[in-house]
Design a protein around this nucleic acid. Structure first.
Lengths: 96, 96
DNA sequence: TAAAAGTACTTTGTTCCGCAAAGTTAATGT
DNA sequence: ACATTAACTTTGCGGAACAAAGTACTTTTA
């Protein structure tokens, strides 16, 4: 319960989810293809991680059309930003 | 190959291995029970992660007796220290 | 002296996760 | 009509995490 690693968020054990959150916490929003190119993963893999983050409300998506092309934009939520920050703080504390 | 997360070390996706390396990189050496108490995990679980880290030569162990009790001491190797540092650098870079 | 407990594992088995590949839906371009 | 793009969902496999139980050896305790 109070081990040295207990403040690390299990969601962010995944490098991919870490990367997604990092991108979304810096840039205010990124679309599916941008994330796919930044992370260099298959679309199915990306979609599943995005869904996981959205299910726990760390991110939210908005579907729209740019010109005539469908486009899905993702952004970090307030909850997501807080949890991400807590994780980074825990990491920092772990490392001294 | 050059994605924003490609410099993260997969070994350290695990919070437990992260914790082990963190302890061993600060203190010069820790024994099995100390790690077990710090991490609050079962001995089997700890042993398997220690073995994984030892197999790739990130840590090394030394069995000894303290008084009449068996004691196994673990310490970080030079390779382990370097790889751990690289991972932390990659993390920092990812977060800006 | 018999039983319990400590140290440091290994083995077993289940469950969960990551991921690629393929399939899907719906629209657009040619 | 056919291929392409976007953004998924589904399927299936292989591997990792973990708890629990088993092991070997010794020491402490009743």
């Amino acid at each position: 319960m109070t081990s040295i690693i207990s403040n690390l968020n299990k969601v962010f054990d995944s490098r991919i989810r870490l990367g997604i959150m990092s991108v979304l916490s810096v840039n205010e929003g990124a679309d599916f293809n941008t994330l796919k190119e930044l992370l260099e993963i298959t679309d199915g893999n990306l979609a599943s991680h995005l869904k996981a983050l959205e299910n726990i409300h760390y991110i939210q998506s908005r579907k729209q059309f740019i010109g005539r092309k469908p486009n899905t934009k993702y952004e970090i939520t307030e909850l997501g930003r807080n949890c991400f920050k807590e994780h980074l703080d825990a990491l920092e504390k772990l490392m001294n």
